[in-house]
Simulated assay, not measured.
Amino acid sequence: MLRHWVFALILLVSGIAVAPFAIAGDAGEPVVLTVTGNVAHPNRGALDPFDDAVFAHLDVKFDKGFTFTLADLKALPQQTAKAKYNEWPREVTATGPSLADVLKAAGAEGKKILVQAIDGYAPEFTADDVARGKLILAVEADGKPLAMGGRGPLWLFGPRDSFADQQDEEGFAFAVIRIDVQ
């Protein structure tokens, strides 16, 4: 860690420009989301079958991506949405960045957006669905951080009419780990 700071200081003093995007996770925070596909400014390279064991297990392949830590996602503008679906015991209030803002931060554009959970569930959305601005990538619900083993750390969430042809809560993936944009 100290080496990174010394190197950065040397670069700063010598006037050498540093790349505009640091690789998420370099500061010790784990990556919680990887955006793949049409990413204009990637901050990571291709899938590594060993290091990206879950992606490899899910048969995911990519040649570049943009990664986010939880802090990166919390630094984006936050939105709050409320929803109560038929099978839920109560209304839930969730907070996180809009899916549109996450894609914008990653420099990702496309007509087809696939949001993949850690279990492989991967609902697909259109650019028009995302442009509605109702889909958020929740990092907390009812004022509490989302945890692994529950719906977290990231939960694709939104109120009724969040996307075209929405059927109750169908399409809201929890334990989201990847977004693929084509």
Rank of each mutant, 00 (worst) to 15 (best):
Met1Asn: 06
Met1Gln: 10
Val6Ala: 14
Phe7Arg: 11
Phe7Gly: 11
Phe7Tyr: 12
Phe7Pro: 03
Ala8Asp: 15
Ala8Cys: 15
Leu9Asp: 10
Leu9Gly: 11
Ile10Ser: 12
Leu11Cys: 08
Leu11Gln: 14
Leu12Cys: 11
Val13Leu: 13
Gly15His: 03
Ile16His: 12
Ile16Leu: 09
Val18His: 12
Phe21Ala: 03
Ile23Ser: 12
Gly25Ser: 13
Gly28Trp: 07
Glu29Pro: 00
Pro30Gly: 13
Val31Leu: 15
Thr34Lys: 14
Val35Gln: 01
Thr36Ser: 10
Asn38Arg: 11
Val39Gly: 04
Ala40Asp: 10
His41Asp: 04
Pro42Ile: 10
Asn43Gly: 03
Arg44Asn: 02
Arg44Lys: 15
Arg44Trp: 06
Gly45Phe: 06
Ala46Asn: 13
Ala46Cys: 12
Leu47Ser: 08
Asp48Asn: 04
Asp48Thr: 02
Pro49Ile: 06
Phe50Gln: 13
Phe50Lys: 14
Asp51Asn: 11
Val54Gly: 01
Leu58Phe: 05
Phe62Gly: 05
Asp63Cys: 01
Asp63Asn: 05
Asp63Arg: 01
Lys64Trp: 08
Lys64Tyr: 06
Phe68Pro: 00
Asp72Asn: 11
Lys74Arg: 14
Ala75Phe: 00
Leu76Met: 10
Leu76Gly: 11
Gln79Phe: 13
Ala81Gln: 14
Lys82Gly: 07
Trp88Ala: 10
Pro89Asp: 14
Pro89Lys: 01
Pro89Cys: 11
Glu91Leu: 08
Val92Phe: 05
Gly96Gln: 01
Ser98Tyr: 02
Leu99Gly: 00
Ala100Leu: 02
Ala100Gly: 05
Asp101Ser: 08
Asp101Ala: 08
Asp101Gly: 06
Val102Phe: 00
Val102Trp: 00
Ala106Ser: 03
Gly107His: 02
Glu109Pro: 00
Gly110Trp: 10
Gly110Asp: 14
Lys111Gln: 10
Gln116Val: 08
Ala117Glu: 02
Ile118Gln: 13
Tyr121Arg: 08
Tyr121Gly: 11
Pro123Asn: 08
Pro123Thr: 09
Pro123Ile: 07
Glu124Asp: 13
Thr126Trp: 01
Ala127Ser: 09
Ala127Ile: 04
Ala127Gln: 14
Asp128Thr: 05
Asp128Ala: 14
Asp129Val: 04
Val130His: 01
Ala131Trp: 00
Arg132Phe: 02
Lys134Ser: 12
Lys134Val: 01
Leu135Cys: 12
Leu135Asp: 02
Ile136Tyr: 04
Ile136Cys: 15
Leu137Gln: 15
Glu140Leu: 09
Glu140Asp: 14
Glu140Val: 12
Ala141Gly: 15
Pro145Thr: 06
Leu146Gln: 10
Leu146Val: 14
Pro153Met: 15
Pro153Tyr: 13
Leu154His: 07
Leu154Val: 03
Leu154Pro: 02
Trp155Cys: 04
Trp155His: 07
Ser162Pro: 00
Ser162Lys: 03
Phe163Gly: 07
Phe163Glu: 07
Asp165Met: 08
Asp168Met: 04
Glu169Gln: 14
Ala173Asp: 07
Phe174Pro: 07
Ala175Thr: 15
Ala175Lys: 14
Val176Arg: 06
Arg178Pro: 01
Arg178Asn: 04
Asp180Cys: 07
Asp180Tyr: 07
Gln182Met: 12
